[in-house]
Amino acid sequence: MTHRRWPLLFAAFAAAIFGCAHAEGEALIKRVETTWRAQDGATVDEILARVAEVAHFVPRGWEASQKHDSEDFVSLSWARSQGDMRDDEHEITWDVSADGVMSLGPARSKTMELGWRPFALSLIAHEVADGYPQPNLAFLRDASNYDFVVTAQGGLGDLLKKGRCTIGNPVSLDYVVLPEKMSKDDLWRLQLSVDCDIKGPSYFTHSGIIIFTKMNRDAWQPASFFARRIAKYPPGHWFEQVEPDEQRTFDAVRKVLKGGK
Rank of each mutant, 00 (worst) to 15 (best):
F10E: 06
A15Y: 11
F18A: 12
G19S: 13
C20I: 15
L28F: 11
I29M: 03
V32I: 12
T35L: 08
R37S: 08
A38W: 10
Q39D: 10
D40G: 08
A52M: 02
E53D: 15
A55Q: 00
A55I: 11
H56L: 04
F57R: 02
F57T: 02
W62C: 06
S65A: 07
Q66C: 03
Q66M: 12
S75H: 09
W78I: 05
G100W: 01
G100R: 03
R108S: 15
K110I: 01
G115F: 13
G115V: 13
R117K: 11
A120W: 01
L121Y: 10
I124G: 03
A125K: 04
H126A: 08
D130N: 11
P133H: 12
F139C: 05
A143S: 01
Y146H: 02
Y146M: 01
Y146Q: 04
L156D: 03
L156Y: 02
L159F: 00
G163M: 06
T166Y: 04
I167K: 01
G168W: 12
N169Q: 14
P170Y: 10
Y175T: 04
V176C: 06
L178D: 09
L178G: 08
L178M: 12
E180D: 09
M182N: 14
D185K: 12
R189W: 12
C196G: 05
I198D: 07
I211G: 04
K214F: 01
N216T: 13
Q221V: 14
P222H: 08
F226Y: 13
A227P: 07
R228V: 02
I230G: 00
K232F: 05
E240P: 07
E240G: 15
V242W: 04
D251C: 01
D251V: 01
V253G: 02
V256D: 02
K258A: 13
G260C: 10
